[in-house]
Simulated scan of single mutants.
Amino acid sequence: MEREKALAIVEKQLKKKRYEHTVRVMETAIKLAEHYGADVKKAEQAAIFHDYAKYRDVEEMRRWVISENLPQDLLEYGDELLHGPVGSFMIEREVGIKDAEIQSAVYYHTTGKRHMSLLDKIIYIADYIEPGRKTPGVEDIRAIVYDDIDQACWMAAQHTVLFLMEHEQPVYPDTFQLYNERLMLKK
């Protein structure tokens, strides 16, 4: 699907600020894909559609979790996580994107996971570091992302875990798995 068509589809689903975020994620993902030798077109598509389900009705997303036999524990960790996994199914059914790599990158863009593909990593970290993000520590991650994407993903997971713990929010197991995977490789 051509970029302009994909952006037009997504723009209808998102609020203005979220659409602008999506464009910045797309631009960041393209740069990372070019740098790391990943499929630029897939990175572009996954970035464009990563927040496709972001503003869907929460009850609708919960129904998708059940009807598509997604991990039921998604329903226990807060509604903010639902748009990635649900979006990965919605883009297939509603838009016709049946590419497993793109769907995986959309699915895990919020939580990350162990054994991420290069495309998964690109979308996960592009969403975290796009130029509009101002989260504490993001500059440190931006500084190393073109040298070591694995370290950048680990740092993003670490920051996410610490943020959620500080706010007494549950941490989804996939994020802990991403954090632990890199930590154990470092030892």
Rank of each mutant, 00 (worst) to 15 (best):
L82R: 02
I125M: 04
H35D: 09
R182V: 04
N180K: 08
Y179T: 03
G37P: 00
L32P: 05
L81C: 07
A126G: 05
L164G: 12
I149Y: 01
I48D: 04
R62S: 10
H115C: 01
D140C: 09
Y146N: 03
D150F: 05
P85I: 09
M116P: 02
G96P: 09
L118R: 03
Q13N: 08
P173A: 12
Y108P: 06
Q177F: 03
E168P: 08
E168D: 15
Y124H: 04
R3E: 07
I9K: 13
E181H: 04
E181C: 05
I129F: 00
V40R: 13
L185V: 06
Q177Y: 13
A43T: 02
H109Y: 07
A156P: 08
A38Y: 00
M165N: 15
I9W: 08
Y146A: 03
K54C: 09
I141P: 13
F176Y: 03
A157I: 00
P170L: 15
D39V: 11
K121D: 02
K121Y: 05
Q158M: 07
K15I: 13
E2G: 08
D127N: 12
A46Q: 01
A43C: 01
H35R: 07
L81Y: 15
A47W: 03
E68G: 11
Q103H: 00
E34Q: 14
D73Y: 07
M184H: 13
D99Y: 02
A43K: 04
A6F: 04
H115V: 00
T110Y: 10
V145T: 05
P136W: 06
D120K: 05
E4V: 01
K15S: 12
L74H: 09
K5M: 11
L162W: 13
I66L: 13
T135E: 14
M155R: 02
I144C: 14
R142W: 05
L74A: 11
V23G: 03
Y52C: 06
I123M: 09
E68A: 14
Y77M: 02
D147H: 10
Q151R: 12
P173F: 14
E166K: 15
R62Y: 04
D140G: 14
V145Q: 03
L75V: 09
D147W: 08
F49R: 11
L183E: 06
P131Q: 07
I9P: 01
E2W: 12
K12P: 01
K12F: 05
G37F: 05
E34W: 01
G87R: 10
W154F: 04
E168N: 15
L118M: 10
D99F: 03
G87K: 11
A47C: 09
N69A: 15
Y128H: 10
R142H: 02
F89L: 14
Y179S: 01
K5T: 13
Q72G: 01
K98H: 01
R133T: 00
R114H: 04
L81E: 12
I30W: 10
D39K: 11
Y36M: 08
Y172G: 07
E168R: 15
V171E: 10
P131N: 06
I125V: 06
E101C: 00
K31D: 03
V40W: 10
K17D: 15
A105P: 04
R62H: 04
H83W: 08
V23M: 06
Q158Y: 12
K187N: 12
K187E: 13
K121I: 05
S104V: 07
A100V: 05
C153F: 00
A126W: 07
F49Y: 15
I129E: 01
E27W: 02
Y36D: 07
